[in-house]
């Protein structure tokens, strides 16, 4: 049994303009100790998916349906109390912006020990010892001094380390990382990714990492879910997605990776912008931006089907397999040629 099994997850927000379908029928699963990457442009529903799993959307304006089975129990219908025991203990989360994710009026030590004492029956000094241990594990220099500092005394990268320490403090089975490196500068990004991988080996947690950066996915993920306009358009093992992507949107994402080693006039981009989730286009939601668009794309929503030669790899596209294989091969060959 998978650790987390998400089936047909839907999250709709009631707004003054109507219902925004922020997540519309998303399914995926995570195995114990593995890393799943969710990629997509801003506004594709990645973050909302995770916030829904964590039960952190505002109850008043959100309509949720589907299933998110955590060790066999549905998180979406779970009582508040039971859910609270899982949140922060079995499933922990780190957020995009470490500058605003820590409470400015509490010492980092207090914020760490709060996380411990919420879930474990330990004394203050035991909690503090555990907090110190974690601060050391995430590579904060002189943790016994820094533990009594306030968040504003830490740099962005150090704060994200504190966030990671806080998330791992109860040995979670799953760590959800919502764009953990987006707000950090490039050298710090690499450090944080390496740290997450190192800690995953040490703690054995599964990781669900959300990103718009395919580089991050290539670096850390075992499995990849590509989201577009609130839906999953392709998913599969990371090497499949990078070697034989089967969906024009994924091609676009891969093609728009900027490269240092080739001179181009301008960055390649996917034309147009993601559709409004208030009123998404009929048929395949990517069709207005797709260079391979056919009549059938405008009428029918393609199902997420296994790619013929690999049952782990799914894609939602009306193009025939031969064309997809050919185009994917061309794209990858082109990228390889550029790289060498």
């Amino acid at each position: 049994m998978a650790l987390l099994e998400v089936t047909d997850l839907r999250t709709y927000f009631r707004t003054d303009d109507g219902i925004v379908k922020a997540v519309d029928g998303v399914s995926f699963s995570i195995e114990k100790g593995k890393t799943l990457g969710i990629v997509g442009e801003s506004g594709s529903g990645k973050s909302v998916t995770c916030l829904t799993i964590m039960g952190l959307n505002s109850k008043r304006t959100t309509i949720t349906s589907g299933e998110a089975l955590w060790k066999g129990k549905n998180l979406l219908t779970m009582g508040a109390r039971e859910f609270r025991d899982i949140r922060g203990s079995e499933i922990a989360m780190i957020f995009q912006d470490p500058m605003t994710s820590l409470n400015p009026v509490h010492k980092v030590g207090k914020q760490l020990t709060e996380a411990i004492q919420l879930h474990r029956d330990v004394t203050k000094s035991q909690a503090r010892a555990r907090a110190l241990e974690l601060l050391k594990a995430v590579g904060i220099p002189r943790p016994e001094r820094r533990i009594d500092d306030y968040p504003h005394q830490f740099s962005g990268g150090m704060r994200q380390r504190v966030m990671i320490a806080m998330a791992l403090v109860n040995n979670p089975d799953l760590l959800i990382a919502d764009e953990p490196t987006t707000a950090l500068d490039v050298t710090t990004q690499a450090q944080i990714l390496t740290l997450m991988q190192k800690l995953q080996e040490e703690f054995g947690s599964a990781i669900l990492v959300i990103t718009h950066d395919l580089g991050v996915v290539a670096e850390v993920a075992d499995e990849v879910v590509v989201m577009y306009a609130a839906q999953v358009v392709e998913k599969g093992p990371v090497e499949r997605i990078f070697k034989r992507p089967h969906m024009p949107y994924t091609w676009g994402l891969l093609g728009s990776l900027p490269r240092l080693d080739s001179v181009v006039d301008r960055l390649v981009q996917i034309p147009g912008s993601p559709p409004s989730l208030l009123n998404p286009p009929r048929g395949c939601r990517f069709h207005p931006r797709c260079p391979y668009v056919m009549d059938v794309c405008k009428a029918d929503d393609p199902a997420l089907l296994p790619v013929f030669d690999d049952s782990d790899h799914f894609a939602a596209c009306h193009l025939d397999h031969e064309t997809k294989d050919r185009e994917a091969a061309k794209l990858i060959a082109g990228m390889m040629a550029q790289a060498s």
């Binding site: 964590m54 952190l56 609270r84 025991d85 899982i86 949140r87 922060g88 203990s89 922990a92 989360m93 957020f95 912006d97 605003t100 994710s101 820590l102 409470n103 400015p104 509490h106 709060e114 996380a115 919420l118 879930h119 966030m163 806080m166």
Partner: peptide, 22 residues
């Protein structure tokens, strides 16, 4: 709506503690 309030909830803090302390 602050991020650190979301962090507190993500830690599993009960609502009254989120309200009071954060």
């Amino acid at each position: 709506n602050e991020d650190y309030v979301r962090t507190a909830r993500a830690k599993g803090a009960p609502e009254h503690q989120v309200m009071r302390s954060h």
